[in-house]
């Protein structure tokens, strides 16, 4: 694998994560429990759409095939997507969304903070913007996780059951490939093995405050890196890509 191929894969992975998260968050538009939350979730979705656009556009540039961010988002099949499985799971309820976003945004705070010093100037520039946004996402969602976990019996039950499902997908965040090793040696990628300890400490602190219990079962479902997804991603893409595939050259 060449450095360019590795960098392309890396950008696609980051871009797909942002895009898939954005899609799941935007599904809350007009469905959130309160108006403020409707605004918050769609604002976070907007941040991630912007991030996805920058990363997928850059991926197209690195590959040199002239594909735009739209081509990347709307014209790739499920097996070509490289997002983490945790991001594509459908939202069971509000607690599920908040617990998931807290787990992922905390990871992204560390990830993008590390990428600010990437030797790849474009990644570093995107990371400098993404890290600030991720901090707002983490602050917002961790406050909600604490409110829900340390709230009523019902909200605690829902937050705990979300955590029980989501926990087995967190391992995917730290899944690496040979391409990552190559980029690491070039100082372009972030070392997720170093992020893991800090991430776990932060998560445990939030969960303690939220009176939520870390699941004992440590089984981890991975595969996103190889394009092996849950059944949910295909359904999501079918809906997301429908318009673009039906009217390929349509302009807004």
């Amino acid at each position: 694998m060449t450095k360019e191929q590795a960098l392309y894969n890396y950008c696609v992975r980051l871009g797909d994560n942002a895009l898939v998260q954005s899609y799941r968050l935007s599904e809350w538009c007009s469905n959130a429990p309160i108006l403020e939350e409707d605004l918050a979730l769609t604002n976070m979705a907007l941040d991630m759409t912007g991030r996805a656009q920058l990363l997928l556009q850059y991926a197209g540039k690195v590959a040199g095939h002239g594909k735009t961010a739209d081509d990347m988002a709307y014209r790739r099949a499920e097996r070509e997507y490289r997002n983490d499985l945790i991001s594509e799971l459908p939202d069971a309820d509000f607690a599920f969304t908040m617990v998931r976003q807290m787990l992922v945004s905390t990871f992204e705070c560390f990830l993008y903070a590390a990428l600010v010093s990437s030797s790849d100037k474009e990644i570093a520039a995107i990371a400098a913007k993404a890290v600030k946004e991720a901090r707002y996402h983490m602050a917002h969602t961790s406050e909600w996780v604490i409110r829900l976990g340390d709230g009523t019996e019902e909200s605690n039950r829902r937050a705990q059951s979300a955590l029980n499902i989501l926990w087995s997908y967190t391992g995917g965040l730290f899944e690496t490939t040979d391409a990552d090793a190559l980029l690491l040696s070039e100082g372009m990628a972030a070392d997720v093995s170093q992020i893991k300890t800090k991430w776990q400490e932060n998560i445990e602190a939030i969960l303690r405050e939220a009176k939520l219990i870390l699941p004992a079962d440590d089984y981890q479902q991975t595969g996103g890196r190889q394009g092996l997804h849950t059944e949910y991603l295909g359904h999501m893409l079918t809906e997301m890509q429908y318009l673009h595939r039906t009217y390929p050259e349509a302009i807004w």
Binding site: E36, A40, N43, M44
Partner: peptide
């Protein structure tokens, strides 16, 4: 603070 996210991404309520 009423909401960390306001009418636009750059503002809180």
């Amino acid at each position: 603070m009423v909401s960390r996210f306001g009418s636009t991404a750059c503002k809180s309520l």
